[in-house]
């Protein structure tokens, strides 16, 4: 028996919005410690790694490990039927071919149940190597989304350049060029408003606007985003999901010029 109940059901709705444009289907690996999802997009340019810890759920039971292959378009349709303040429970029998979503209104007066067919996905389990990153940049997630959106008007690529002075985002195209520099902030009232640059070595890498903009669909999950870069390895874009876990996007750089 698997059962995971989340009083703050809106988090699950937001997680779905953050992955459904990148992945058509994915396996939810449910274990005693929590739920893991790891999948590359069809073109193998990006990877989504979602981690939801058992402790973050209001009730969590997983008697034996189960892998639930889900069509994310269908799951997204179902989660759209939940209100933002609904309590969401996912449950499945040990060897079931369906998963059930239960939405309870806060006053318990409305209870909706949706059963969805599971899929047999032949997906490889991927191991993510431990990587030391030269630059780790924390910035407000809304600011990052704004920068990606603004620079997308200029071209298909965004160059992210990190030095000890701060971080520079730039783009160039037919209409001209754009440069946005963010300096490390001094004292801020709220930690989430800070721009923090932890740099060992300066790094400049080029990334696809299209993918960065898809990652920013996770913005409602967290006020802060963390970018980790090293030469010749994928960029990591991480959003925390409340106290429950995180979503990490890995993106292969664009090469040459």
């Amino acid at each position: 028996m698997f059962e995971a109940r989340l009083v703050q059901g809106s988090l699950l709705k937001k997680v779905m919005e953050a992955i459904k444009d990148l992945l058509n289907e994915a396996s939810f690996d449910c274990a005693h410690s929590g739920i893991l999802l790891q999948a590359m997009d069809n073109s193998h340019v990006s990877l989504v790694s979602l981690n939801l810890r058992k402790e973050g759920f209001d009730k969590y039971r997983c008697d034996r490990n189960i892998v639930m292959g889900m069509n994310l378009t269908s799951m997204s349709k179902i989660l759209k039927c939940a209100s933002n303040d609904d309590i969401i429970t996912m449950k499945a029998q040990d060897s079931a071919d369906t998963v059930t979503f239960v939405f309870e209104s806060p006053n318990q007066e409305k209870v909706s149940e949706y059963e969805m067919k599971l899929m047999n996905l032949d997906q490889d389990q991927l191991g993510i190597p431990e990587t030391e990153y030269c630059c780790i940049i924390k910035l407000p997630s809304g600011e990052f989304a704004r920068i990606c959106r603004d620079l997308s008007q200029f071209g298909e690529s965004i160059v992210i350049s990190c030095t000890k002075e701060g971080v520079k985002f730039s783009a160039a195209g037919d209409i001209g060029t754009a440069n946005i520099k963010l300096a490390q902030t001094g004292t801020v009232d709220k930690e989430e408003d800070a721009v923090i640059v932890d740099m060992q070595e300066p790094v400049t890498l080029t990334f696809s606007c299209k993918y960065l903009n898809m990652f920013t669909k996770a913005t409602p999950l967290s006020p802060q985003v963390c970018l980790s870069m090293s030469p010749d390895v994928p960029l990591v874009v991480e959003y925390k999901i409340g106290e429950i876990g995180h979503i990490r996007y890995y993106l292969a750089p664009r090469i040459g010029d």
Binding site: M40, S43, H44, V45, S46, L47, D124, Q125, L126, G127, I128, P129, E156, S157, T206, S208, V233, P234, Y250, A252, P253, R254, I255, G256, D257
Partner: peptide, 14 residues
């Protein structure tokens, strides 16, 4: 224009 790299090879299939 730069070419898009891929992730194949970075992640180990377990």
């Amino acid at each position: 224009t730069p070419t898009q790299g891929r992730l194949d090879g970075f992640f180990k299939v377990m």
